[in-house]
Design a binder for these strands. Structure first.
Length: 875
RNA sequence: GGGCUCGUAGCUCAGUUGGUUAGAGCGUUACGUUGACAUCGUAAAGGCCGCCCGUUCGAGUCGGGCCGGGCCCACCA
């Protein structure tokens, strides 16, 4: 024993020094692991947190899960890389800084100018990034900091520029005019996923429109109308289809064409709609189908343009009121519905009403064939990856969501009208466009003022962090890219399945022709105690650092891992963390007990060599350890982290601590077995609760448990198989002991009250030989002997405080009889059913007849046999 | 409107292809504990597994319907 352990585990005392030790060891970096060349790689890239704010519990859950996978694989001989980074989160960050500057000085970004404003952003980013990295370390995350990346650093800028050029040259990126979601406040386009729809009350205006009366909630767009559309099935308006009509408007008469289009709902309003191609998505689609011109009347500030006569310069809502009152004066309003409920589209960042606007933007075509993907489009290739299960989603149901979303994907608008972000490598001179690495030769070129959608750079995350494009020449990967790509697991929240995961797949397929990962593990959202989403506005967020300070990082990690299943939200509660803190302390004290007064020889014994089992309890506990190991391995392979932890938890507390340590106390034998058990459970627990296990390990080891390999396992299977059969014997003993304790504590000691004659032969001997030792522990037994009661079976007579107890077994005989009877009944039904289907008596003849003579083992064997027949029959 | 998901002990949740007596943590109650640990131990109480129908020898598990929560997508001019 190198260091005496304190009575309780104090996380704050150990965590920082241990983390420092890990980091200084260099083992977070797989290059330092001294592995044979053929060691398989295991890579996870950390989903880069937005640098807008400090981490919340959701991030902690992410870190706990990924660090679990990483540490587990590192301890199992993999070349394990966990690659850290942060995301510049263009729009979010810019908004954050704008708000900050405005509250501090009342200035807007335009007041500051682009250069000064960006400097403010860089300052902000440096601060928050430092906070985030600090929090990440506190969680114990074993990330390879030497490979730290940022979505907007120099390497990533190079990669992004290159990707843009490659896609442009492949004809995948193009510039085009589209109606886009425009936020007049952020002055930027928004992706469809960035638009939030909110139910709101509005007015629905029924306006007189030539021969029609039609309903609109936006009468001001009448100034941009170029058509009226009706459903082709609608008998009411057939006569007008194809005609050109002259309409009276508030700034004079104008002409519209009447078209028939399937997008029009016969049952809504009057069944006729006005078509404003420039300011409505649906109208734009209708216009495209019928070759109708558009007329832009709203500008980028959300104001009416100069072609709107006296309304020019008004915001749309002011113009709406003005136009409505003018129309009323002209008798053009039929009536108004005041209570109209509709969904208004709003900016997910600033909540402004979205204005659909036509605009020149850069797009990635998801439908254009890509030569090096066998002429598949990005969409087709990305769908195929999931359908062919080259990428597997956990839980599986998200495959469908991914698939459906991909199917309906439109071209991806990648340009954003904000300052902070990746600049677009395109230059303009008049009508000329140049796309290239640098500004072209010659006078008068101006670079595109827009920046790229933040998902463009984060979509490249799995390979831009591994040295692409330098590590990819002529289709051959080298360096980190060859070694660590594709990655094994992408672990992230299900809410960004479509935003991010889908884009990573497309980007990787385009750049490398391979999938970015094999598994996508989607964790749920951490909700507050009441089941509500945590958010800043509600003030119900929890700072993980507070929890770490109060309970330790291990307790926080364990509370996030246990009781959570993939894809399902889970509730956070402090009680949960407290319970895990108690467990961590339990493990600490188990170690304290094992390690105290231990001789050096035992202490030095290997965690890898199975010690000799002398007693029933030895065999039981070693068998238990090995079966625990088996279950944990299987659970880890299936991403069942909660099950893995549960299994270890149960073994450690309920078997090892509550029973085996008690036995060890009686036998006063703290030998190799205890050390073997301790070393192995510490190693197995380490990926879950790295700090406490390392702290204990360090108290008697020079090396780090972080790189201690899980003991070899296959050679011990025989032992395990042989000894699980003995498990029942030990359980029987446990029950016997409990029965005695109860009989005592209830102070109503009646001979054989609880237990009936099921103990015969071998088991009675077992009790006689083993029980005295165990029973003697805390019961104050006067004597134990074998006796024969009124019944003919052997019984154990135990005398406590001069009162006699006859212990015949620990299982309630009535219950046991009832169970066996039911079991037999069920079997008989099964037999009858099978016989009927097979048309013979074979099974009836073989059925167990006398339940009293039937042993459980035989029943079970018979049942298994019948089930196999049943399965065969069904197939 | 389309899709997904959940409903199991007082609370939070497990329950892997249908199969013995449906589990855990917390909480409650009773009892216990002088040396690993009160951040402890032993036990008890507590379940129409949302409801109905079906498939099956057998359903918490599979199918259909209903009730009730949550989420996602589309979108109304």
């Amino acid at each position: 024993m190198k260091n005496e352990l304190e009575k309780t585990y104090n996380p704050g005392f150990f965590e920082d020094t241990i983390y420092q030790k890990w980091e200084e060891s260099g083992f977070f970096n797989p290059d330092n692991l001294n592995l044979p060349n053929e060691a398989p790689s295991y890579t996870i890239v950390l989903p880069p947190p937005n640098i807008t704010a400090k981490l919340h519990l959701g991030h902690s859950a992410m870190l706990a899960i990924e660090d679990l996978l990483i540490r587990y694989h590192r301890q199992n001989g993999f070349r394990t890389l966990w690659l850290p980074g942060t995301d510049h989160a263009a729009i979010a960050t810019q908004n954050m800084v704008e708000k900050k500057i405005f509250s501090e000085s009342g200035q807007s970004r335009h007041d500051l100018g682009k250069e000064k404003f960006l400097n403010e952003v860089y300052k902000f980013v440096a601060e928050t990034q430092a906070t985030i990295l600090h929090q990440t370390r506190k969680m114990g995350a074993s990330l390879d900091w030497s490979r730290l990346a940022f979505t907007l650093d120099d390497s990533r800028q190079k990669a992004v520029k290159r990707m843009f050029l490659d896609m442009y040259r492949a004809g995948i990126i193009y510039r085009g005019e589209r109606v886009v979601n425009w936020c007049p406040r952020c002055h930027s386009t928004l992706a469809d996923d960035e638009v939030e729809h909110k139910e709101e009350k509005a007015k629905l205006y029924w306006i007189k429109y030539g021969p029609f009366i039609l309903a609109t909630s936006r009468p001001e767009t009448k100034l941009g109308d170029t058509a009226v559309a009706v459903n082709p099935q609608d008998p009411r308006y057939q006569e007008y289809v194809g005609q050109e009509l002259e309409i009276t408007g508030v700034i004079g008469k104008f002409k519209v064409k009447v078209v028939a289009d399937r997008a029009v709902d016969i049952n809504f309003g009057s069944g006729a709609i006005k078509v404003t191609p420039s300011h409505s998505f649906i109208d734009n689609e209708i216009a495209a189908r019928h070759n109708l011109p558009g007329k832009k009347i709203i500008d980028e500030d959300g104001k009416m343009m100069s072609n709107c006569g006296k309304y020019a310069g008004m915001t749309t809502s002011v113009a709406r009121d003005a136009i409505v009152s003018d129309m009323q004066a002209m008798g053009l309003i039929d009536h108004i519905d005041e209570e109209y409920i509709h969904n208004s589209a709003r900016c997910y960042r600033c909540d402004s009403v979205i204005e659909p606007l036509p605009s020149k933007q850069w797009f990635i075509s998801v439908d254009a064939p890509v030569a090096h993907l066998n002429e598949q489009s990005l969409k087709q290739a990305a769908i195929a990856a999931a359908d062919k299960q080259e990428i597997r989603f956990l839980p599986e149901r998200f495959t469908k969501r991914y698939h459906d979303w991909m199917e309906n994907l439109h071209d991806w608008c990648i340009s954003r009208q904000i300052w902070y972000g990746h600049s677009i490598p395109a230059w303009y001179r008049g009508e000329e466009i140049f796309v290239g690495e640098n500004m072209p030769e010659g006078e008068g070129w101006v670079q595109d003022q827009d920046t790229l959608d933040t998902w463009f750079s984060s979509g490249m995350w799995t390979f831009s962090t591994l040295g692409w494009p330098d590590n990819f020449q002529d289709g051959i990967k080298s360096g980190d890219l060859a070694r660590f790509h594709p990655t094994q697991v992408l672990e992230t929240g299900y809410e960004i399945l479509t935003l991010w995961v889908s884009r990573m797949v497309m980007m990787s397929l385009f750049a490398l022709g391979e999938n970015p990962f094999k598994h996508v593990y989607l964790h749920g959202t951490i909700l507050d105690k009441a089941g509500k989403k945590m958010s800043k506005s509600k003030g119900n967020g929890v700072d993980p650092l507070d929890m770490i300070n109060s309970y330790g990082a291990d307790a926080v990690r364990l509370s996030l891992l246990m009781g959570a299943t993939p894809g399902n939200d889970s509730r956070y509660s402090e009680e949960k963390i407290e319970a895990k803190r108690n467990f961590v302390n339990k493990l600490w004290n188990i170690s304290r007990f094992v390690l105290s007064d231990l001789d050096e020889t035992s202490l030095a014994s290997s965690a890898n060599i199975l010690p000799e089992a002398k007693t029933l309890a030895d065999r039981w506990i070693l068998g238990g350890l090995l079966s625990t190991r088996k279950t944990v391995d299987e659970a880890m392979a299936n991403f069942e982290f909660s099950l893995a932890a549960d299994t270890l938890y149960d073994f450690t507390w309920n078997k090892l601590a509550d029973w085996y340590l008690e036995v060890a106390k009686i036998e006063k034998d703290k030998g190799q077995i205890l050390v073997y058990l301790l070393k192995n459970i510490l190693i197995m627990w380490h990926p879950f609760i790295p700090y406490v296990t390392e702290a204990i390990w360090q108290s008697f080891n020079e090396s780090l448990i972080m790189v201690e390999q899980w003991s070899t396992w296959n050679d011990k299977l025989d032992f395990w198989v042989a000894n699980t059969a003995k498990e029942n014997d030990f359980i029987f003993l446990q029950e016997a002991i409990i029965a005695v304790r109860n009989a005592r504590s209830e102070n109503k000691i009646e001979p054989a009250r609880k237990v009936q004659a099921l103990v015969v032969g071998e088991r009675a001997n077992l009790l006689l030989t083993q029980a005295p030792l165990l029973l003697g522990l805390r019961t104050g037994i006067d004597s134990i002997s074998c006796d024969t009661k009124a019944s003919e079976e052997k019984a154990i007579k135990i005398v406590i405080d001069k009162t006699e107890i006859y212990l015949l077994g620990a299982v309630d005989a009535d219950k046991e009889q009832a169970r066996l009877f039911k079991e037999k009944e069920n079997l008989e039904k099964l037999i009858i059913s099978l016989s009927a289907r097979l048309g013979n008596q074979e099974f009836i003849d073989r059925a167990p007849t006398n339940i009293v003579q039937v042993e459980q083992e035989k029943l079970t064997r018979y049942r298994v046999e019948l089930e196999n027949i049943n399965i065969a029959l069904k197939a």
